[in-house]
Design a protein around this nucleic acid. Structure first.
Length: 882
DNA sequence: TCGATCACGC
DNA sequence: CCAACACGTGATCGAA
């Protein structure tokens, strides 16, 4: 059966460009859009097996729509040169595959595709359109499906009439009416003001089309909506016309001419070599000459299995550099048993079962030899894991895990299989494929296991040169070599060291909580007039809003909201509310912080050994799990008491904590160069009071506590990049009032405003933003037509340089601090990092030194044009270090 | 098993 | 009144 595939070339290339990091060849040719396009194309060929295929491109400057609406696509910033230069390459790609491409002067790809799908539809051909543009959903019919690219271009979502009905409750052609009503900012289609997707769908479900809605304006509910519709009849009609894809373009191409019978591997692999798509080369089938001379491309994978008997013969193979991977059974390397070690270099791949490895003296010495360079995936994991076996690894010279994270921080927690797919020729199975998941997880037989681990080591070996090149391209070698890599070794020490926990204290607090919770439960049942599960938002909602008839202030997807901010507003209505709030608070303490923490106490050490994840966050911060030691309560006194259970691991020692004061705002002052903000910090003022003075135009004495609180919330919003809506929720004021606050803030701190405008512009041009140390975050949604996605990306553009630079600074401080401790021969140990705070355990005789040294090191980690400030305190427990 | 809701930190 | 709440982790519920 025939299958006709039509690709919207411009749309797919655009999506690919913004979804992938800006890669380039050694000659400096940008290739990310080409790579994304190729990935999509290979996937389509493999999964859809088209018999006919064609790619359409936009052509010419004067699109016929311009004559109808001069502003059409006016809001769109111009294509960046890094992308435009890739279009000729994409054409070359298609020629290599012998795939027909088509463009028509003055028409968009949409219209070409619209016309051809109509032809295909008339002949009842099975047809699929590949695009990133939702407008194209209007082309869907019995024979025509539209596949929308998602997550950039790596995944596709297929739409038939059924799917469109399920998702929107509309027929395909009504997609045009939807756009007519709601508009599309990316194409500058105006739509009707005040009408978004929700309202538009409601109107269409009721009336069916733009025309019908306009005929029945009087019946539409909502005065403002009626008014908007009445005033914008022309706009609505015009928008619908603009959104309509032409299906009668003068296309002189017969569908029959697009036949496709597979591609010739030779020109394709030539093209891939030119693009330096090393990982794709292995995926294409090059026809094998009958004499077998083409074997070079299909070298089978092989590796050496090391045993007690043969190990001596491989001693000489332990070279430098060499890729190393330690396979463990489980995620938590503080406990996970070791299974084996994979090793790889240019001409060797080996697997050493752990039982053999741990008794192989030459290998253990090689591991501990700092002169023998190791390339690894997550060196912290290896270092800590092997330390639990009283062995050591030294000489880690490249970590593909950290490198891959720096190249694309939005893909959090890179896995080795995904790294291999991007940067190596060897395919690595995901651990889930090898072990199974959940209850079915099982360590496989040795033959499967050894091959899996060997693949991992080989993939690391192959990835390193590619990653190095890309890091150099992005100027990130120093960020990796001087920040993340040394930091991973500092974190390894902290994790292995662990923090001592007073479990008796936890037990005692748990018992107190149990009593209080039992009392509260009785009280709540009494007030509610019956027993129910207080932990169930659903059941709680029924009690509050049905039985007690309290007003519903906010709804979630599943029913009325019972979150703390809502309950606080309901507190005056009924005494049960306060009891529930307290119950929630104490319940959280019990389950997460008493029970959860107790479970994580290591039996041998009586300590908790957290896992710091160095490659998870989009901003460059660390995160902490098992247990999470970055969210131990502090704001409420009852919760704060949990910190009494965190104690020094040696008798007579102290806990010492130091935190940066307002580090994000200081960084904002530095990068925005705002004179007012710089002045505030240089004078050492309380920043929230100063903000209140400036925003409200009053003197220091006139700042009320309300004014300071509001100024603090505005500063909070600036630092965290929240919207005016977010600020209004925080302060419990209207969105307009919140907007006014922000406006007044920007009047006073005009340098901040200027910087924020610039950074958004820059993000739109580059597709990413950077921190002071050149950490990078891609913002694929920055030019999205979806208001929410775009606004979010814009706030991220403003927030990430601030939060990310703060992360850079404390990471630097940690490296310097560890160096200082070692250099001065101190016994004190760094234990924790909580984003802007460092916690140490310190012997009494080092207290004086550390009280001075820690803030000094933190404050001088990076030199800015405002001073950095760190406050230090100490005590017998973490609680007392306040 | 997994999404939704809630709550803790910075 | 388009819709929406930075960055994380973890516990619990209840529908599949």
């Amino acid at each position: 059966m025939s299958h006709f595939v039509l690709i919207d070339g411009n749309s797919v290339a655009n999506r690919a460009f913004y979804a992938l990091p800006l890669l380039s060849t050694s000659a400096g040719l940008h290739t990310n859009a080409v790579l994304g396009f190729t990935t999509m194309l290979l996937k389509v060929l493999e999964e859809m097996k088209p018999t006919h295929i064609m790619v359409a491109f936009d052509a010419g400057k004067v699109v016929f729509r311009h004559s109808e609406y001069a502003e059409y696509k006016g809001g769109r910033s111009k294509t960046p040169p890094e992308l435009s230069e890739q279009f000729p390459l994409i054409r070359e790609l298609l020629d290599a595959f012998s795939i027909k491409r088509f463009e028509l002067e003055g028409y968009e790809a949409d219209d070409i595709i619209g016309t051809l799908t109509k032809q295909a539809d008339e002949q009842a051909w099975k047809t699929t359109v590949i695009t990133g543009d939702k407008d194209m959903l209007q082309l869907v019919s019995e024979h025509v499906s539209v596949a929308l690219t998602r997550k950039g271009v790596s995944e596709i979502e297929l739409y038939t009439p059924q799917e469109i009905h399920e998702k929107y409750g509309l027929k395909p052609l009504q997609i045009i009416d939807l756009k007519g009503l709601m508009g599309d900012s990316s194409d500058n289609i105006p739509g009707v003001p005040g009408v978004g997707e929700k309202t538009a769908l409601k109107l269409l479900h009721e009336y069916g089309s733009v025309e019908q809605v306009l005929e029945n304006i009087d019946k539409v509910s909502g005065k403002k909506l009626q008014e908007n519709l009445r005033e914008n009849v022309d706009k609505a009609n015009m928008s619908k016309a603009l959104a309509t894809i032409l299906r009668e373009a003068p296309v002189e191409l017969d569908v029959q001419d697009t036949g496709f019978e597979g591609y010739d591997g030779v020109p394709v692999s030539e093209f891939f070599k030119k693009m330096e798509f090393k990982s794709l080369l292995s995926k294409i089938k090059v026809a094998q000459p009958a004499d077998g001379s083409g074997q070079a491309d299909a070298k089978p994978f092989s590796f050496e299995m090391i045993s007690e008997e043969n190990k001596v013969a491989y001693e000489s193979k332990l070279t430098s550099p060499m890729a190393l991977y330690i396979e463990m059974d489980g995620e938590n390397y503080h406990h996970a048993p070791f299974l084996g070690i994979g090793l790889a270099a240019e001409d060797t791949v080996m697997f050493v079962p752990w039982d053999v490895a741990k008794e192989w003296k030459v290998l253990c010495e090689w591991l501990a030899d700092p002169a023998k360079e190791k390339w690894v995936f997550d060196g912290k994991r290896d270092t800590v894991g092997i330390a639990w076996h009283d062995l050591a690894i030294k000489g880690i010279s490249f970590d593909v895990y950290l490198a891959s994270y720096l190249l694309n921080a939005t893909e959090s927690n890179p896995t080795l299989d995904s790294i291999a797919a991007q940067y190596a020729q060897t395919r690595v199975l995901s651990d889930e494929e090898v072990y199974g998941k959940g209850a079915k997880r099982l360590v496989p037989e040795m033959d499967v296991l050894s091959e899996h681990v060997a693949h991992k080591a080989a993939a690391i070996w192959q990835s390193v040169p590619v990653l190095r090149e890309q890091l150099a391209e992005n100027e990130m070698e120093k960020l990796l070599g001087e920040l993340e890599a040394p930091l991973s070794m500092v974190l390894a020490l902290m994790e292995k060291q662990g923090v001592k926990v007073n479990s008796e204290r936890l037990v005692q607090m748990g018992e107190d909580l149990d009593k209080k919770l039992a009392g509260l439960t009785d009280q709540i049942y009494e007030l509610a007039g019956g027993a129910f599960n207080i932990n169930s938002p659903k059941q709680l909602g029924e009690i509050l809003f049905d039985r007690l008839s309290l007003p519903v202030l906010k709804k979630t997807k599943t029913g009325p909201s019972t979150s703390a901010d809502v309950l606080e507003k309901l507190a005056p209505y009924h005494p049960i509310i306060d009891a529930i709030l307290t119950f929630r608070q104490l319940g959280k303490l019990r389950s997460t912080y008493i029970e959860g923490l107790t479970k994580e106490i290591h039996t041998k050490t009586s300590k908790v050994h957290t896992l710091y994840n160095q490659a998870t966050t989009a901003t460059g911060r660390l995160s902490s799990t098992d247990p999470n030691l970055q969210n131990i309560p502090i704001r409420m006194e009852e919760g704060r008491k949990i910190r009494e259970a965190f104690i020094p691991s040696e008798d007579g020692w102290y806990m010492l904590a130091a935190d940066y004061s307002q580090i994000e705002l200081r960084i904002l002052a530095h990068i925005s160069q705002d004179e007012n903000l710089i002045d505030a910090f240089q004078k050492g003022m309380d920043i929230h009071t100063r903000t209140a003075m400036d925003v409200f135009g009053v003197s220091e004495e006139e700042v009320t506590s309300l004014m300071r609180r509001q100024a603090k919330a505005v500063n909070f919003g600036i630092v965290y990049g929240i919207s005016d809506y977010g600020l209004s929720q925080n302060l419990n004021i209207t969105r307009k009032e919140a907007g006014d606050f922000i406006e007044r803030y920007f009047d006073v701190f005009s340098g901040v405003k200027r910087w924020m405008d610039e950074i958004v512009q820059q993000a739109k041009a580059d597709g990413y933003v950077t921190t002071l140390l050149n950490r990078r975050r891609y913002l694929p949604d920055i030019r999205s037509s979806n208001f929410n996605l775009r606004s979010f990306a814009e706030r991220t553009a403003m927030n990430t340089p601030i939060q990310g630079t703060a992360a850079d600074v404390i990471k630097l401080a940690m490296i310097c601090m560890q160096e200082a401790i070692e250099e001065k021969g101190l016994a004190s140990r760094m234990l924790l990092q909580v984003h802007d705070e460092l916690v140490f355990e310190v012997p009494e005789n080092e207290l004086e030194v550390m009280r001075k040294l820690v803030p000094e090191v933190m404050e001088s980690a990076l030199s800015l044009n405002v001073p950095l400030k760190a406050d230090v305190s100490d005590g017998r427990t973490w609680y007392d270090a306040k």
